[in-house]
Design a protein around this nucleic acid. Sequence first.
DNA 1: TTGCTATAGAACCAGTTAGTTGAATACTGG
DNA 2: CCAGTATTCAACTAACTGGTTCTATAGCAA
Lengths: 111, 111
Amino acid sequence: MQVDELSRTFAALADPTRRALLERLAQGSAAVGELAEPFEMTFAAVSKHLRVLESAGLVSRGRDAQYRPAFLDARPLRAAAAWIDDYRRFWRDSFDALDDHLTALTDKETA
Amino acid sequence: MQVDELSRTFAALADPTRRALLERLAQGSAAVGELAEPFEMTFAAVSKHLRVLESAGLVSRGRDAQYRPAFLDARPLRAAAAWIDDYRRFWRDSFDALDDHLTALTDKETA
DNA sequence: TTGCTATAGAACCAGTTAGTTGAATACTGG
DNA sequence: CCAGTATTCAACTAACTGGTTCTATAGCAA
């Protein structure tokens, strides 16, 4: 499919299981068995999620005996944060035109 | 599927067409015809993308004669930015353990 | 070796997505 | 009302996703 980096990053973040995996990995690396433990799903499913995260560049894998520990690599999040940051003014600014517009819409609808 | 807000937001952002629509809407509201113009795809397809953005809460729609203008509503991006921000230290801190680890990995692989 | 543990691969399935085309609807202007 | 413009709906399709199960591989330990 050859999709761009940013799309892959956002797509990876769009699944709550994968976000939870990243949250866990923020505490330190872990192998699949440990990562899978809190979830009601097979190891293979977690392994697939890890592969998605890996192909988004958000985790790297290692080898430690039988274990394949996963490490968080947050670097792709930088571009994602940068993209979103461009919209910060639209939600920070409570007096901007959009806000007025939305208020007006709501008023009209509830009138 | 009844998915959570954050997942819907990230999923909406995972498509480059939809991100481009949001970028356009950051300049001001626009109707479907105008929004569709830069894309090689039918109006119906753009209309569908708008519905995804709308159900993610990222755009609201109005009515102006035959036109159904779309407005940016960036508020859901706030939670998305907040989620990502928790990882900021992982990419900002060039001396953290992960970075060392990744460097070590690379060294080992290229050795 | 042999067997155990941890993980990945392959095949499969149901549901979703992103697009199409063609028909239907909503509004305006004469 | 009628014709035209803007948009959506419905049905369809191909590809992708998130899960399963079953099998295969990798590494350790005896």
